[in-house]
Design a protein around this nucleic acid. Structure first.
Lengths: 196, 196, 196, 196
DNA sequence: TATGAATGAGGATTCATTCAT
DNA sequence: AATGAATGAATCCTCATTCAT
């Protein structure tokens, strides 16, 4: 009898190696053999556990999205206050493992593929919608409906922009600064929204 | 008798074809032969006018940066009022040709290469510094020094984030909405900065 | 406790699956995993019962040859009349299971390998000699020695050619037509051989 | 300016190398690199002049078919007598270059692919129909309509069978013997067809 | 006995680059 | 100046075989 239950282990191993390879060598230089070298397995194994390289890449993006989703979801659980919920979303996006160079480099690479890969575009769309939906719900409780929508758009863009800075300027904006800027943005929106 | 003055024409032709190919096929599928097919020339010509594919790609990014730079510089000329200067920077970043799908797709592709290409990283660093420097100078005239720096960081991130949205969700945020969100962000920063 | 007597069962199972796979997917696409999938067993099992893929293929050809041999032998038993013996050989070659699409496709595939596989060449040679020997013996009893040899050659070639037609044009020549043409050929040989 | 008019030369070179490789190594072992090594060119060249390996294989079969066609057509030109026309067809099929080991090995290999390759099947069908049509026309002039059809089928099968013998038993039936057997078959058919 | 996970050599194909013309 | 034929290294993928369980 062969080893049982290897599938989830190997899949995780290969996905992690893919993220590591994108971080280390870049998306263009992330080849199947590099991924497998990183994982310490032979090249053929990719086709045991995935339909091929593209499938592994899609699975990797799914994994990143899932990590982000649960990072946010975990911080939202039990929080009812709208301002605190927004804070939880911000914190979830800038949590240590989300804002780590490895993760941000991988995100950037996937973003660049999105316009030309229907599979990745679909995943990206789902994620963007969830973030917007979460933010709008929260903003609606503390801002006039008209403002809530653009508040959500603005905060979404700011979060992405801060991630992008993280990816492009490694020593630049840190997680704390990023969180601070996002929080300040929210505060300013709420001040404006308040009656004078 | 060799045609004179072909160099700038051919270089421009190939750079434009590179942007078009990245937009149409994505960065990964942008091959030398596709670029040359797009430009209507033979594959060998790339090595007459560039040192090779990587050099052409770097030249293309340089061209994009230059367009952005002059789009901003043109709007800054003669403007002295700090708030207006910031507005000019925002407008320069979201001008029609800068926020066009072709341009944004190419930017996104280059951003993804930045962490793994010293040549592109250098270009990106120069651009980021210029933007930050412009913004800080302006903000310092209307905000306390302590706030000016993070105001510049925040606005820089927001601009990039809005570009990113433009690239990832084609039908999403338009140039006008983007400009509006960025402007509103600046206004809220100034309100906060004002004495009560 | 190991199951006893599995060997012949498994070998037969794998040989049948090999024929089926050659018929269904062609020789080039007949991989070990396809054979095993067809047989409903795991890929590793081939090496329990055969020395490897090539050995399984040789065993499969041996099995086909054996089927043909016994198809002919069965019809020859007890038949002494020369003309009838030739008829039995023809009937044996075009019996339902021999002229079935599965079998003919497999034969064709093996024929193509014969010039490049000593193992298969040996099997093919044995078979060809047996057929020729049978035919010559029979023809010698009813034809002058000089003619008997080429009669055997001609009939052997015609039989193979009719098989080939069966393989290449599925809806073309049926078993009955094939038998008829072969018989007519024999008859004409005998007429010629007769004194006027 | 690059070398002009290389296309027909290279295509011929690669087709010849394909036939040589099938003869030398067998169809299964005929890889792109072996073909190119045989032709003395690099592997990439195949994709300049053909759509890929399959396209080269189809072109090779087309070339073989064409050689056969013209070998027959050349011998038919100007011949009006039906019996002589049949003789010309036989001679065309067993001409030196058609019955050469290289050619016959390649034919055999292609026959084995026919049932699983629509492209090759189409070519094979065209060829088979032309042969049958030629033979039937000729036989109809010297045999009753009812017999002409099966005469054509029989002779077609015999020719293929003799080729097969040539491929399977290299030292076996030679071109002369093959031609003799086919001619004798035709003669016997005509004798039978004659009124007693 | 039987499994199927794992290997890695070898397959077809792509592509940046070179160079004779 | 410009071409595009030719190269061959590198890519992804397939598959016969091995082996721990």
């Amino acid at each position: 009898m062969p080893k049982l239950g290897m599938e989830p282990i190997r899949r995780r191993q290969l996905i992690d190696a893919t993220v590591a390879s994108i971080h280390r060598h870049g998306f263009a230089e992330t080849t199947v053999s590099r991924i497998c070298a990183e994982a310490g397995v032979s090249t053929g194994i990719v086709h045991h556990y995935f339909d091929g390289k593209d499938d592994l890449l899609a699975a990797t993006m799914r994994s990143l999205l899932d990590d982000l989703r649960s990072s946010v979801a975990g911080r939202l659980t039990g929080v009812t206050d709208a301002r605190r919920r927004i804070g939880a979303i911000i914190d979830g996006n800038f949590a240590a493992d989300q804002f780590a160079p490895q993760a941000v480099a991988a995100w950037l690479a996937f973003w660049a593929q999105v316009p030309h890969s229907p599979a990745l575009a679909r995943l990206q769309r789902i994620n963007a919608r969830r973030l917007q939906s979460n933010l709008r719900h929260a903003f609606r409780q503390i801002l006039p409906a008209a403002t809530a929508r653009s508040a959500a758009q603005g905060l979404g863009a700011l979060i992405d922009g801060l991630w992008l800075q993280g990816a492009l300027t490694p020593g630049g904006i840190g997680a704390d600064t990023a969180r601070g800027l996002a929080s300040a943005y929210v505060d300013s929106l709420l001040d404006e929204g308040k009656p004078a």
